[in-house]
Design a protein around this nucleic acid. Structure first.
Lengths: 252, 252
DNA sequence: AAGTGGTCTAGACCACCAT
DNA sequence: TGGTGGTCTAGACCACTTA
């Protein structure tokens, strides 16, 4: 004897999407809104099923997708947690430079420049902002085992990180994406990279202590948050004489 | 009133693995044995559930994994098919060079050399074969829009492709991985690549019609079949003056 | 109309973790 | 001991393709 809700269980939401896609959307919306902070547990699957009025299996299917995209992390017996940008995770998923032997190590980062500027046409297009909008330009030198190996040039819309200055940027604990996440709630969940070979310019040869005209690996990265919103550009120049870029698609 | 099989449904197989992992293994074994050929449909989920004596959901979970790894392809209403190395799939999953505008096009391939030789220590280690074993060495020139862009040097154990000669290799229809698959039942399902920057040597400058000392992108690839067995080495030298290597981890 | 994969449910038990 | 995720089942209906 139920109420008038005799409309049978329907596979589709009003907009023709499967139910679990709707649950997934509501989960990411709660994540974006900061209802559950990075490192915290989200409610149990049972509780979420009650909250959304769906079965446990449907909640699990939604969470399955977010886990596959490394937005959530399951831990049997403990709960499901919002992924954090720890040093380990960054090294594993967002840093692709390894030694010839395949080993990765955490780079030491030296801040070379922290400048305010405005987006040029190309940057504006790739960041999906207006040309001329204020941006921060950050240059880092990355050392591996003490040797300078990578020059990073980062561009981020100033609007996304209000109040960020050289002092607070330099004194952050943890990774840069960790800073975006902890201080501004910006969660980088995906990156796209394009690679090419280039010759080191005088600046690079000096910073990386190279002979003139050394070939370098150039990586142009765009970092995205939820719903494929771009939040950061980054160009890396890599001395690949002792290191390589590792691309292990599928089955990381 | 069942038979003595009153042992309750158990989550684990004797070796402590979940049931669906066992189903997955039996599926890949059938694939390796050639029970279902590339392009063909595997039995329906209902039929497989009966055959393996498990529930439909368990079969689905096993197939889910193989679909995620692009070993199988589902088509609603039609069936589940063994993935084939068509030109389209190769272009999408195994060819990462695109124009600056992000567009990919199918390369024209010119066979430059087809030589028999023996594996050196490094090749043997990476192919997991004995040093000195017979290999085929193949060199290809890849053109995009008519311009030479990539030099491919391929090494494959001769034992894996008995009877393959320059004539039959050159007259193949479709892709190289398609040839391995169709003629030898070797299904390349995953590749691992390491990238570095290097200077073009005289050979490369000539073949790619470049100025001397142009920086090139060097890609060292290992191709794997089921159970992570390496089957092919490939070095690509890429002129990145008009093209780039695209690395879109997650959400391809 | 029949067969396929896709979604959703409800319920059971297991493995693991914290207390 | 209680709560969490992990696995497995059985059954229903939907969406799509093919004949």
């Amino acid at each position: 004897m139920e109420t008038a809700t005799e409309t049978r269980l329907r596979a589709d939401t009003p907009d023709g999407q499967p139910l679990y896609k709707g649950v997934r959307l509501r989960l990411t919306q709660s994540l974006m809104a900061g209802e559950w902070r990075p490192g915290q547990a989200i409610p149990s699957e049972t509780r979420l099923a009650e909250r959304f009025g769906v079965s446990l299996g449907t909640v699990r299917k939604a969470i399955d997708e977010l886990v596959a995209e490394k937005i959530l992390v399951r831990q049997q017996g403990r709960g499901t947690f919002v992924a954090t940008h720890t040093a380990d995770r960054t090294l594993f998923y967002f840093f692709h430079i390894a030694g010839r032997d395949g080993r990765k190590e955490t780079p030491q980062i030296e801040l070379l420049a922290f400048i305010r500027g405005r987006a040029d046409a190309d940057e504006a297009a790739r960041l999906e902002i207006a040309r001329g909008e204020r941006v921060l330009r950050i240059r880092n030198l990355l050392r591996l085992a003490g040797d300078p190996v990578v020059i990073d040039d980062i561009v981020i819309p100033a609007q996304l990180v209000p109040g960020l200055d050289e002092e607070s940027f330099g004194s952050r604990e943890g990774t840069i994406y960790g800073l975006y996440q902890a201080r501004y709630g910006i969660n980088v969940i995906r990156i796209s990279e394009r690679l090419s070979a280039t010759l080191a310019d005088p600046d690079s040869t000096r910073l990386l202590a190279l002979p003139a005209a050394t070939p370098l690996l150039r990586i142009a990265r765009v970092a995205y948050t939820y719903h494929d919103r771009p939040v950061e550009l980054r160009q890396s120049l890599v001395d690949t004489s002792a290191h390589e870029y590792v691309s292990d698609l599928v089955k990381q």
